[in-house]
């Protein structure tokens, strides 16, 4: 049985009310969901709260999910919408802290001359996060999966059940929109 088919079965069980199956889905997606939120808002505690809320909402809405194979994209959208709402409630993105942030900062430091270097201030990070949140849902999801998670376009297409050409097109339009919104950080 393929990985996708196995996951569809687990999703179907969770839809029917099986909490153990939902736990299996958490094992698979908990880390990535937490990482996305953590990356976007820069605070461990809030990221944990939002990740928790993401899975609770997913559990409640799961019976209404039409395509079990689209679970991964659907779950990410719940997380991204919750993060967007949290950011838009006029709460500033918090500065980096803790061990994980040191890891992030080291990554930025590896690219001293590049644009990522400019992201060290929380204001710049907030601008990027806000720009991503302003994308339409389709573009936002693909941008997050490709640029933040580092997934190849073919894998994104498989996970979302859309052709590679559509993934590329959403990626291009999303990047075009971000380039305009983030002009001060990307223009030489």
């Amino acid at each position: 049985m393929s990985t996708e088919a196995a996951e569809e079965k687990v999703v179907a069980k969770a839809q029917a009310g099986d909490q153990r199956a939902f736990g299996t889905l958490y094992s698979q997606y908990g880390r990535v969901i937490y990482s996305i939120i953590r990356h976007m808002i820069g605070n461990e505690e809030t990221a944990a709260d939002l990740a928790q809320e993401t899975f609770i909402r997913a559990w409640r809405s799961l019976p209404r999910l039409q395509e079990p194979k689209a679970f991964g994209g659907w779950l990410r959208m719940i997380a991204l919408n919750l993060t967007r709402d949290w950011v838009r409630a006029d709460r500033p993105t918090e500065p980096l802290d803790g061990e994980n942030d040191e890891e992030m900062a080291r990554q930025w430091a590896d690219d001293e001359a590049g644009p990522a270097d400019r992201l060290r201030t929380s204001e710049q990070q907030r601008q990027v996060t806000e720009a991503v949140h302003r994308l339409n849902e389709d573009q936002r999801l693909v941008i997050v999966m490709h640029h933040l998670e580092g997934k190849p376009v073919a894998e994104i297409g498989r996970e979302l059940g859309i052709p590679v050409g559509t993934v590329l097109s959403r990626l291009a339009r999303g990047r075009e929109a971000l380039r305009i919104k983030l002009a001060p950080y990307v223009e030489e």
Binding site: Q52, Q107, H147, E149, G150, L178
Partner: peptide, 30 residues
């Protein structure tokens, strides 16, 4: 500028979720 936009976005470092996160979620699953 377009290439810099891609670089500006990531990649993000994957970080482990807190150990007790699933327990906290499970406690609230009706």
């Amino acid at each position: 500028a377009l290439e810099n936009t891609g670089a500006l976005l990531g990649p993000m470092p994957a970080v482990d979720a807190p150990r007790d996160l699933w327990a906290a979620i499970q406690a609230q699953l009706e």
